[in-house]
Write a protein that binds this DNA or RNA. Structure first.
Length: 615
RNA sequence: GGCUGCGUAGCUCAACUGGAUAGAGCACUUGACUACGAAUCAAGAGGUUUCAGGUUCGAAUCCUGACGCGGUCACCA
C-alpha cells in the first residue's frame, strides 16, 4: 500500500500536468496535515503553485481538488480556503488501515536494519550521588536508545564512569580520617550517598581550615601583595581558593599525595579506592534499576585514560597533527573555525580529548558501531565539535555517524542548582517524592481499592515515575528547562499519568467486553470526527517515529503520545463503545481502542514509561 | 571581548523546519459523574512571539542591528 502523502503528491503532480500542462519540481508541492479547525486530514498549499499555473490560489485549489477527488480513490472530498486545499480521506481507506495494520501489536516498528549504534549516557563521577541533572541525561539517553531500537537499529547502551582524579581522593581521605571504619551497611545509608557524605565532609573541613588560615599573618600579607584588582577580602579569598588548596592546605596536600599514591598503584590506596568506588556503584546500580535503565557495557576512565596516544602519533605521521618543539602535539582546526587544540602535553601525557579519541575507537572495536551518540550537556558543545572534527580528519570509519546529543541544564525556579548552597536535587529523593505524591493522589480514588496492597504499590510506582519522566522528557533536548520539585510533579493535564489513564481506559473497555466478535467491524460506516482524528494519528505514527529518530528527539514521541491520549479521552466522552448503536460500530470501536492502546504503550515504552492496566 | 545558543500567555512548554485566526497544560472563572473509570470532558479569560529594520504572496521561524539571559574560550575533566 502506497502511503497517503506520496499518493497525494503524485496526484498533485499529475493534476498540474493534466490541468495546466506544467511539470512541478519537488519544491513547489508543500503538503502538511490539516489544522484542527478545518475539515480534512491533508492540506496542499497552493500559493507556491501560482507561478507555475498562472492562476489564483483559490482557482488552483478548486481545480486540483476536483481532479484529486475524481482520480485518487483514497480522497473522498475537499474544500478550499484561500490558498489551502484541504483533502478528506475516504472512510474505507482508514477503516481498512485500522483493521489490517494498526491493530497489529508490532505496528509502527520496522524490521531491523542491521545498523549498529552505541548510545552513551549517564556517565557520572564517583564522588557524589546522582542528581536531577543526571536524571535528565539518563532519561534522554535511554529514550533515544529505545527510539533508535524501535526504528530498526541494533542499539547498545554504554556509560563511561569517571572513577579517577582528585575528587574521589577527597572522599577517600575524609573517610580514612573521620570514618572510623564504618560502612554504608553499618551506617544504614545508601552506599553512594554514604560516599557523597564524606566528600561533603572533606569540603567542610577544608573550608574550616581555609577560614582559620585567612587570619594568619601569612594570609594577611598575601592579601596585601597579590590583590592588584583591589578586591574585597571575601571576593579575593573566593578566587584564591584553588591556589590555597594547591600550595598551603594540609588537606589539599594530603589529597594530592593520595592521588599520587593511587597513580603509582600503591596497594593500600588502590584497595581503598576499590572499596569506595564499589560502594558508589552499588548505589548507582540501585538508582539505575529504579529509573529502569540498563547498560550493555560500562567503561571506566581508570582503564581508558591512557588510550588515544597511538592515534595521536598516527595523526602526526599522517600530517594531520603537528608536534611543537617541546614535544607537545597540537591540531590546527582554524580552517573549521575551531582554533588550535592540544592533544598531548609536552611530557607526552594525555589529555581529556586524547582519551575521548581512544574510547571512540575502542567502542568501534567493541561493537562495530557506525553511529555513536554522546548524551552530554551543552556546556561541552565545543569539545564535541573538536572531537568529531579530529576523528573526521583521522578518517575513522565511524566518523560520519557521530552525534553529540546535547541538552540544556535543568534549573530550579530559584535558579541553577548549587552544591555549595545545598540546592542540588537528589535523584533518589526525587523519585521518593513523586511516588509519594502519586500515593496521596491514589488514596482519593476507588479504582484500585480491591487490589492487593502489593499490586497497588506497583501501580502507584508506575504512576509516579511516569509523571517524573514525562515531565522531563516532553521538553525538547536543546532547551534549558525549569523543574519545580516542590510542586513535585503534576498528575493532571499534559502529563504521564494522563497518557496512562487513556491507556487504562482502552484496557478497561476490553476487560468488560470479554471476547467480542469483531467480524462486523469492516462494515462500519460514517466515521465520527473523533474516530477520524484517532485513525489519522495512528496513521502518522510510523512517520513520527522515523522523524523523531532522525533528529534524536524523544520529546516528539512524548508530544505525540499526549495528543493521541487526548483524542482518546475525547472519543471516550463523545461516543458509546460497548453500547454502540450497531454491532459494526461496537466492533470497530473496540478495534480502535485496541490499536490506540497498543500505540500508546509502544510510544511510552520508548520513553521508559510503564503502563498499568488499571489505576 | 571572540565564538556560540536562547528570548513565545502570569508560570511550564508547543508550533510538522517559511504557511491559515501563534497552540497545549498549570493556575484562575464556569458547567458536566445513578452512563464503558471524572487522574476525564466542555466552555471562558489570558499574546504587539524582547525591540527596530529588511527579504516575499506569507516571518515566531530567514538576514542585519540593538537589548537581555546562558554556555564556552587550559599542555583541567
Amino acid at each position: 500500500m502506497t502511503a497517503l502523502p506520496q499518493l497525494i503528491e503524485s496526484g498533485v503532480r499529475a493534476g498540474l500536468q493534466a490541468l495546466y500542462g506544467v511539470a512541478a519540481g519537488g519544491q513547489e508541492i508543500t503538503l502538511q496535515s490539516t489544522r484542527k479547525e478545518f475539515d480534512g486530514e491533508y492540506t496542499v498549499v497552493t500559493f507556491p503553485l501560482t507561478r507555475l499555473a498562472r492562476k489564483k490560489p483559490e482557482e488552483i485549489g478548486a481545480d486540483l481538488g476536483e481532479y484529486l477527488k475524481r482520480e485518487v480513490k483514497e480522497i473522498k472530498d475537499f474544500n478550499v480556503i484561500k490558498g489551502f486545499l484541504n483533502l478528506v480521506v475516504e472512510d474505507a481507506f482508514y477503516i481498512d488501515f485500522l483493521l489490517d495494520e494498526a491493530v497489529a501489536p508490532d505496528f509502527g516498528r520496522p524490521a531491523p536494519n542491521g545498523e549498529k549504534v552505541v548510545v552513551e549516557f549517564a556517565s557520572p563521577n564517583t564522588n557524589k550521588p546522582l542528581h536531577l541533572g543526571h536524571v535528565r541525561n539518563i532519561l534522554l539517553g535511554w529514550a533515544t536508545s529505545q527510539l533508535l531500537k524501535a526504528t530498526g537499529y541494533d542499539v547498545s547502551t554504554v556509560q563511561i564512569v569517571n572513577d579517577r582524579g582528585i575528587a574521589i581522593c577527597k572522599s577517600m581521605l575524609a573517610w580514612e580520617r573521620f570514618g572510623e571504619g564504618t560502612t554504608p551497611a553499618k551506617a544504614g545509608v545508601k552506599a553512594d550517598h554514604f560516599v557523597g557524605e564524606y566528600y561533603v565532609l572533606f569540603e567542610t573541613r577544608f573550608q574550616e581550615e581555609y577560614k582559620a588560615w585567612q587570619h594568619t599573618t601569612e594570609a594577611h600579607s598575601i592579601f596585601r601583595e597579590n590583590n592588584p584588582k583591589d578586591l574585597e577580602e571575601k571576593a579575593f579569598w573566593k578566587g584564591y581558593k584553588n591556589t590555597y588548596f594547591n600550595t598551603h592546605s594540609e588537606f589539599g596536600q594530603a589529597a594530592k599525595e593520595m592521588l599520587l599514591r593511587w597513580e603509582e598503584g600503591e596497594e593500600e590506596t588502590v584497595a581503598l579506592w576499590n572499596r569506595m568506588n564499589g560502594w558508589v556503584y552499588e548505589g548507582f546500580d540501585e538508582t539505575y534499576r529504579r529509573i529502569g535503565v540498563t547498560f550493555d557495557k560500562v567503561y571506566y576512565e581508570s582503564q581508558t585514560y591512557l588510550l588515544g596516544k597511538d592515534m595521536v602519533e598516527g595523526g602526526v605521521d599522517k600530517g594531520v597533527f603537528y608536534r611543537k618543539e617541546d614535544g607537545s602535539v597540537f591540531v590546527d582546526l582554524s580552517d573549521a573555525k575551531l582554533d588550535e587544540k592540544a592533544l598531548l602535553r609536552g611530557d607526552g601525557t594525555s589529555l581529556y580529548i586524547t582519551q575521548d579519541l581512544g574510547t571512540a575507537r575502542l567502542r568501534y572495536d567493541d561493537f562495530g558501531a557506525t553511529r555513536m551518540i554522546y548524551t552530554v550537556g551543552d556546556e561541552q558543545n565545543y569539545h564535541f565539535q573538536v572531537l568529531f572534527e579530529i576523528l573526521k580528519r583521522l578518517e575513522e570509519p565511524y566518523a560520519n555517524g557521530l552525534f553529540h546529543l546535547s541538552y540544556g541544564m535543568v534549573d530550579l525556579p530559584t535558579g541553577r542548582m548549587k552544591s555549595r548552597e545545598g540546592t542540588v536535587v537528589d535523584a533518589d529523593d526525587l523519585m521518593d517524592e513523586v511516588v509519594q505524591e502519586a500515593y496521596q493522589s491514589s488514596l482519593e480514588r476507588e479504582a484500585t481499592s480491591e487490589l492487593s496492597e502489593e499490586d497497588r504499590r506497583e501501580i502507584i510506582r508506575k504512576i509516579g515515575m511516569a509523571a517524573l519522566k514525562f515531565q522531563i522528557i516532553k521538553v525538547g533536548p536543546q532547551k534549558r528547562m525549569v523543574f519545580d520539585p516542590k510542586e513535585s510533579v503534576d498528575l493532571q493535564g499534559q502529563t504521564g499519568p494522563y497518557v496512562q489513564n487513556a491507556y487504562v481506559r482502552t484496557r478497561a473497555v476490553w476487560r468488560k467486553a470479554g471476547e467480542p466478535d469483531l467480524s462486523s467491524a469492516r462494515s462500519y460506516t460514517g466515521l465520527e470526527p473523533t474516530e477520524r482524528e484517532l485513525i489519522s494519528q495512528l496513521y502518522a505514527y510510523p512517520t513520527l517515529l522515523r522523524d523523531a529518530a532522525a533528529s534524536y528527539d524523544p520529546s516528539l514521541v512524548a508530544m505525540y503520545s499526549y495528543e493521541l491520549a487526548k483524542n482518546l479521552h475525547r472519543f471516550w466522552h463523545d461516543v458509546s463503545i460497548l453500547s454502540a448503536d450497531t454491532d459494526a460500530a461496537r466492533a470497530f470501536r473496540l478495534s480502535l481502542c485496541r490499536a490506540v492502546g497498543n500505540v500508546l504503550k509502544s510510544g511510552m515504552n520508548i520513553l521508559g514509561i510503564e503502563m498499568p492496566d488499571r489505576m
